[in-house]
Design a protein around this nucleic acid. Sequence first.
DNA 1: CGACAACCTGAAGCAATTCTGAAATAGTGT
DNA 2: ACACTATTTCAGAATTGCTTCAGGTTGTCG
Lengths: 221, 221
Amino acid sequence: MKVLIVEDDSRLGPFIKQALTECRYTATWVRTRREASDALAETPFDVIVLDLSLPDGDGLDLLHQWRQSGFNEPVLILSARDSLEDRIKGLDLGADDYLPKPFSMQELIARIRSLVRRQSTVKLTVLEHAGIRLDLLGHTVEVNGRTVDLTSREYALLEIFMQNHGRILPRTLITDKIWASSYDVDTNLLDVYMSRLRAKLESASGKPLFKTVRGVGYQLV
Amino acid sequence: MKVLIVEDDSRLGPFIKQALTECRYTATWVRTRREASDALAETPFDVIVLDLSLPDGDGLDLLHQWRQSGFNEPVLILSARDSLEDRIKGLDLGADDYLPKPFSMQELIARIRSLVRRQSTVKLTVLEHAGIRLDLLGHTVEVNGRTVDLTSREYALLEIFMQNHGRILPRTLITDKIWASSYDVDTNLLDVYMSRLRAKLESASGKPLFKTVRGVGYQLV
DNA sequence: CGACAACCTGAAGCAATTCTGAAATAGTGT
DNA sequence: ACACTATTTCAGAATTGCTTCAGGTTGTCG
């Protein structure tokens, strides 16, 4: 876990760094807006602790600028200014927490833990294989960067292949998953949908993607 | 955006609910642990405001119990107890913020906004996409520079799309977020409001903005 | 090589979902 | 109490995905 501390006070800065290091965080301390932006551009951080009063400009402006340009890292503001307006302004400019000075180091650490915890619950929801990108959360599919529209059956079918890439999937296994188990054996629905999937995906991809294993089933290569 | 307020004070509870409603949140107020757990089991919330002193048990225990069983909705603790230990304990049990009483309603709302924002991938207070400009603070909407008047339901609907642009949003997900406990399956409220939103936004925009994904839901392109 | 089985794919009917205008109801402010 | 607006219900129309079917193609085995 990497924490960036933006704090111009040359006693408080190292003190926070020390405390975080003891809690096994990797802390980086910088003093100015410029250094902060440089550090952030260089490597990603998990949490940023931002003091508002900086030698080369206001911390709130810096935060606003970051958010505008798409930085999504959680930011905890540290400030001697503790008016209600300051707090609300800070939170509305995209801060995730606002801790007025003076503060207890223990509380700072507890709040950082809270920010980290929330972020780490983000699950991996994108399957990627053979140039196909399947977003489980967004239910969207891209092939080589191009969006492909699939109906729900087609999507369900593709999802099975993406979750078992490389495996040879027997026809019955696939049909059992997509169509309710009591199922007419004498139908060629699977064939029809394989055909559709191929038409949509392979035209976007250029390469053949699904291998048919005669007498058994299919395989995503 | 749905907020659950767990507060036994029968003056403060409705007051918070009122304030949130004015800010276009869908707020539900409950008094007890039991009611809170029931409400939470029934439908998902975006934020939970939790008072610690409840008639039928301690709020911290309740929070701990939720976290144990996998609820990861953001929780903001509201408490008259304001010792440092209380705060740290609250945060470490899985709270996302801790606001001591007495508090300013404006700050509470700002902190709720911050929690909601933290959940979404984008941290700005102005969302802009596909020519639509949505100001989360002012609750105003512009399409290609022209102001569009939306009712609160319409606004709530658009906000969900703007927070999740590109994703295909299942119908149930949307209705769950806008309407409290939607056991009513055979209602076409969502259809009606989608129709309205389209009428207002697409006429101002000129382009089609929402794609319907048959059998699943809708997508803001 | 020929016959049979498995697989592919286009066309068309069907069924379910979704759209949308209009009317009823609830809610709000004067 | 009244007027006005927002929300919800309802029903017919339009749309589109699902399924079936039939004819063509490819692969396999005797």
